[in-house]
Design a binder for these strands. Structure first.
Lengths: 72, 72
DNA sequence: CTTAAATCGGGTAATTAGGGGT
DNA sequence: TCTGTCCTAATTACCCGATTTA
């Protein structure tokens, strides 16, 4: 069938982001409202977050999820 | 990948739309039923979605994933 | 024509949004 | 100031069998 290019950005749910930071999903929502996290909205109003941005923030906080060894 | 004419309207399956929004294909179906998405029906009753419309909705949600070529 | 995957429906749990208060 | 919890309403995810698609 017509396989489209999978250049699409990988998105995470609020729960998935919360699990990575060990915080409550509501806290992630507050970060999004405060503009600390870029949020995408589903057509129903639920938030989705860019995986790359979350990983970067985690790395910037000194926490490496290390499925990849740090380059620096 | 498939070589498709740019003049033709590119249609996406429910799964492809769902992957871009990080939701379940059933949710995309629900959006179509709610009139939030324009849907084309195959002769068997399956839904197809306009790629341009999906891209616009994603962009309106705060995500611009236009790495390939500008939709002008 | 056969096989495997996807999408149809419906129905029911789980998640999320938003506000308020600790 | 920041975070976790309580509440209700809305949205989304997973269950099934049957049909369509590739």
């Amino acid at each position: 069938m017509a396989t489209i290019d999978d250049t699409a950005e990988q998105l995470l749910t609020p729960s998935e982001v919360a699990a990575r930071f060990r915080v409550d999903p509501k806290t992630v929502t507050r970060w999004a409202n405060a503009g600390k996290l870029s949020s995408i909205r589903t057509l129903g109003g639920h938030r989705r977050f860019r995986r790359s941005e979350v990983e970067e923030l985690l790395a910037a906080s000194g926490l490496a999820e290390d499925h990849r060894h740090p380059a620096a």
